Simulated assay, not measured.
Amino acid sequence: MVEARMIALFAGLLGLAVGSFLNVVVYRVPRGESVVNPPSHCPRCDSLVRARHNVPVVGWVLLRGRCADCRLPISVRYPLVELATGLLFAAIALRFDTVAVLPAYLWFAGTGVALALIDLDVRRLPNAIVVPSYPVLLALLAGAAAWEHHWWALARAVIGGAVLFGFYLLVVVAYPAGMGWGDVKLSGLVGGVLAFLSWQTFVIGAFAAFLLGAVVGVAVMLAGRGGRKTALPFGPFMIGGVLLAVFAAAPVASWYGTLLSPSY
Rank of each mutant, 00 (worst) to 15 (best):
residue 3 E to K: 11
residue 7 I to E: 02
residue 8 A to P: 02
residue 9 L to P: 09
residue 11 A to Q: 09
residue 16 L to S: 03
residue 20 S to Q: 07
residue 23 N to F: 04
residue 30 P to C: 07
residue 31 R to E: 15
residue 31 R to G: 06
residue 35 V to D: 12
residue 46 D to W: 13
residue 47 S to C: 13
residue 48 L to P: 15
residue 58 V to K: 01
residue 59 G to V: 00
residue 61 V to P: 08
residue 61 V to A: 15
residue 63 L to V: 04
residue 67 C to N: 04
residue 68 A to R: 13
residue 70 C to E: 12
residue 71 R to P: 02
residue 73 P to F: 06
residue 73 P to T: 05
residue 84 A to D: 05
residue 85 T to E: 04
residue 99 V to R: 12
residue 102 L to R: 10
residue 105 Y to H: 12
residue 113 V to C: 06
residue 115 L to N: 06
residue 119 D to M: 01
residue 120 L to W: 15
residue 120 L to P: 05
residue 122 V to M: 08
residue 126 P to T: 07
residue 130 V to F: 01
residue 132 P to I: 03
residue 134 Y to P: 01
residue 136 V to N: 10
residue 137 L to N: 08
residue 138 L to H: 08
residue 140 L to I: 10
residue 144 A to C: 07
residue 146 A to H: 14
residue 150 H to W: 13
residue 152 W to N: 12
residue 161 G to C: 04
residue 162 A to N: 04
residue 162 A to K: 00
residue 168 Y to H: 12
residue 169 L to Q: 11
residue 172 V to Q: 14
residue 174 A to T: 12
residue 174 A to Y: 09
residue 174 A to N: 07
residue 176 P to V: 05
residue 182 G to K: 10
residue 187 S to K: 08
residue 191 G to R: 03
residue 192 G to C: 10
residue 194 L to G: 05
residue 196 F to A: 01
residue 198 S to M: 08
residue 199 W to F: 06
residue 200 Q to C: 12
residue 207 F to I: 15
residue 209 A to Q: 01
residue 214 A to H: 07
residue 216 V to S: 06
residue 217 G to N: 07
residue 219 A to I: 11
residue 224 G to E: 04
residue 226 G to W: 05
residue 227 G to P: 10
residue 230 T to Q: 03
residue 234 F to S: 06
residue 234 F to Y: 12
residue 236 P to D: 01
residue 239 I to C: 08
residue 240 G to L: 10
residue 241 G to Y: 05
residue 244 L to F: 15
residue 245 A to F: 00
residue 245 A to C: 08
residue 249 A to F: 11
residue 251 P to V: 11
residue 251 P to N: 06
residue 260 L to H: 01
